[in-house]
Structures are given as structure tokens and as C-alpha cells.
Computed example of a mutant assay.
Amino acid sequence: DEKKDDDKRDVVMLQNGEILKESVDERHKKAVKQRFMFNIADGGFTELHSLWQNEERAATVTKKTYEIWHRRHDYWLLAGIINHGYARWQDIQNDPRYAILNEPFKGEMNRGNFLEIKNKFLARRFKLLEQALVIEEQLRRAAYLNMSEDPSHPSMALNTRFAEVECLAESHQHLSKESMAGNKPANAVLHKVLKQLEELLSDMKADVTRLPATIARIPPVAVRLQMSERNILSRLANRSSEP
């Protein structure tokens, strides 16, 4: 009898273990299904990924994943543009499939220029997304054609100096606090760093003055991509329908 009781107990434990395992697996599968994945590989040439990082952090901390605009909203904004067309902001907002786009603006509804604020934001946001998408396509084509960057191009010199400024500022950001606390050696180093930054910014200013002439010679985006606006939208639509 004791042996039978032990067998029953073992069976119950096994059954409980299996049920628990199944429930964990089911939860994991649901989590995988609900996981949102969307990216634009712009190579860091726009501020999009910095914005996404800050916005997603704020949305996660405050648990306002719908009220704070972030990556998910950008995805549905692009989907709305594919379905309704460029600058058809009101049509997109009135479409129940894109109701998420209205959530971040509910707090502004009592303002007199509510629609203007919302439409201007959507236009600015789409301009940034469009810029990132164009760069992504250019990078893809450059990789496909095995193209290399021209180091003598003014924009490359500007990009290099910007990276130097960013690196210098980040690596010495602690000096300001130490200098304010009365640390004399830190104060001396800070002055040297500021002088270096001033020289780099002066060089960048010179590079910027040469850019307009260079930019004027750059062909339009559609020509560079060898695609019409209709083809670009069609490509986006096809990409969004992929699993």
C-alpha cells in the first residue's frame, strides 16, 4: 500500500511538473508572439535611434507605452502613410486601425490649435523616418555594390571631427564637477580640453561653409536611389507585409 501511495505521489508530482512546464511554455510563446520588432538601419546618421532609446526608456519607466510616442508609433505611422498617402494626416488619424497614433495627443485635446500641433508633429516625425529609410536604402545599395566612402569628401571630414568632439566631451565630462569642487589639477585639464573643443568646432565651422556647394551638386534622393516615390512606397508596403 505504501508503495502504491508513493507511485501515486510520483505521478502527481510528474503531472504537476508537466502542467507547470506547459504553462510556462505557453506564456513564453505568448510573449514571443507579442514581442514588437521594428528597426531602420540608418547607420547612426540620423538622431532616430537616440530618440527611440530615450522614448522607450520613458515609456517603460512610466508604463505609458501608448501615451508616449516611440518606435511602435513610428511603425504604425509609416503603415498609415502607405495606406492613405503622403501628408494625409487626418485620414490616418481617423482610421481606427491607427488609433494608437492618437494616444500621445489626448492631453492636448483642449488646446485651440490641437490639430495643428498634432499634424506638425506627424509631419516632422515622418520627415525623420523618411530620411532614415533613404539612408538605410543607400547603405544597403552601397554594401551590395561594394562601394567605399571617399575620405576627401567634406562631409566625411565633418563626420570625423564630430566623432572627435563627442569622444572628447564624453571622456572628460567628469572634469566639470571636479573643477567646480575646487580641484585645481582638474581645472587645468578642463581648460586644455575646452581649448581642444574650441579648435575642433572652428574646424567644423570651416567644413560646414564648404558643404553648400557640395550639397548643391548632389542629385535628388529619387535619382540617387533610382526609384520613384511610388516605388519607394511600394517597397515599404511589401516589406511591412513580410513575416
Rank of each mutant, 00 (worst) to 15 (best):
E56Y: 03
A99F: 07
K64P: 00
N146R: 12
E103V: 05
K29D: 08
I135A: 11
M180I: 07
P151H: 09
F45D: 04
A132I: 12
E108H: 15
N83E: 15
D74I: 05
N119V: 06
D74H: 09
L51G: 00
L48R: 05
M147D: 08
S148E: 12
N94Q: 12
G43L: 06
R111S: 02
V11E: 08
E2V: 05
L236M: 14
V32H: 05
E18G: 04
A142Q: 08
R88D: 07
D10A: 12
R88G: 00
E166K: 15
N110R: 13
F45R: 07
I82T: 07
L139V: 02
F38D: 08
T62E: 05
R161F: 04
E199D: 12
A186G: 07
Y86S: 10
K3G: 07
A157I: 15
R235L: 11
A188T: 13
L133M: 12
P219W: 14
L14V: 07
K30E: 08
N16E: 09
Q53W: 06
D25C: 03
S234L: 15
E149L: 11
A87W: 03
E229H: 14
D6L: 14
L236T: 05
R125V: 03
E55G: 00
M227G: 01
T65P: 01
S50F: 01
E149Q: 09
A216Y: 05
E56W: 05
R230H: 10
G80T: 04
W76Y: 15
E55D: 06
K64W: 00
K4F: 09
R217H: 04
